[in-house]
Design a protein around this nucleic acid. Structure first.
Lengths: 200, 200
DNA sequence: TTGCCGCTTGACACAGTGTAAACTCCACCC
DNA sequence: GGGTGGAGTTTACACTGTGTCAAGCGGCAA
């Protein structure tokens, strides 16, 4: 795929990952990543010609290290549609903080870098598929509200579970991660489940 | 407040406004604004020393031109809490597209410019107050769900009505503005209103 | 020994923001 | 008429960060 020693490549990806994770608002430059990886700035460009490529590769690196696929797959094994919705909200909701650092950087590039935009949009499309599947399971059980069409319900769930919404609730509103996951579960049920035995 | 001819200042603000409104993803540079205003780039800096200041002034300029205050005030006169919630969602939801151009630019600067961050956060705090007031009215009528505390309900409503969520639904999901407003009204009621006579 | 691979060093182009200084134009005021 | 100051213009430049280019260097393998 790309030139250079795979070990160096991995060191760069690790450096990018951890810097972005720790960067609380601060910019992470190519030079910072190089320094942290113990490599020259040009070496970084040898492995990743564009900043966007490095960021994209970093998300994949994290996915591999954290095993997203396995985690999201778990939500597919839930019994009922409602349980599946809960499981999906929990799985994805708890994955957001893991990729948030890179996500931030990638979202910021989205505006002026078409590659970054495509890469991030692709990832979000994958999340959307998860939402769609959860809604389908709900509908199959006859538990989907008739207030929204399945497509609308998918859109709403996907928007609710966006990284931006997570940022707003966690950072601006000061919710804990636990509160976020529980709150989103409750909100998703209220919003999308038909007969939920809700009283008020 | 600032030096220079108020007319020139207004021309610059108008230029910024219309360029940002029309800029669909494209960057709007200080030079672009100057050119459109029929003025030198340096003249822009004479009126607005920093890009962030220009953007902030532009939002205020739009507010004045579009009369937000009046529009939002209308939602305060609604009879019941539920009506007030509807009115607020409608008023703010229909205002988002008006400021979206500048909003985008300001949100993009938020990351590395503290002034831009403060300015945008202040604006969003104002929206939050509106959410809070709507929730309070709902609670006063005894119509607020007991699934969430008033604070949580405010946070959820505020997040739902964020510019990012609007972008997601309108741009990524292809909702029309009408569909957005109606969808948000329905979602807000489902999520927050206790006895809404909902069937499914 | 030769040759390549992986990396380093150092220089540079480019864009966009922001600063600085000198100069023009005009209106106003004595 | 002559002086003054405000508003804007022109030109030039510093700075930051991305991305490119070219030369060089150490180690390893044929």
């Amino acid at each position: 795929m790309s030139s250079g020693n795979p070990e160096t490549r991995a060191r760069i990806l690790d450096a990018a990952w951890h810097l972005l994770e720790a960067a609380d608002g601060r910019e992470v430059r190519m030079g910072d990543i190089a320094k942290r990886a113990g490599v020259s700035r040009q070496a970084v460009y040898l492995h990743f010609p564009k900043r966007a490529e490095l960021l994209i590769a970093t998300t994949r690196h994290i996915d591999r290290a954290k095993g997203v696929d396995a985690r999201l797959a778990a939500s597919r094994n839930a019994g009922s549609g409602v349980e599946r919705l809960d499981a999906f909200v929990e799985a994805w909701g708890n994955y957001i903080p893991e990729i948030h650092g890179v996500g931030r950087a990638l979202m910021a590039m989205r505006e002026h870098d078409p590659d970054a935009k495509t890469a991030w949009d692709d990832r979000m499309q994958a999340v959307r598929q998860g939402c769609e599947a959860a809604i389908r399971a709900l509908a199959a059980d006859g538990d989907l509200t008739d207030a929204f069409s399945p497509a609308e319900a998918t859109d709403l769930l996907w928007t609710m579970l966006s990284v931006r919404a997570w940022e707003a609730l966690r950072t601006d509103c000061g919710w804990s991660q636990r509160a976020y996951v529980d709150g989103m579960k409750a909100a998703a049920r209220r919003l999308l489940v038909a007969r939920d035995g809700r009283s008020g």
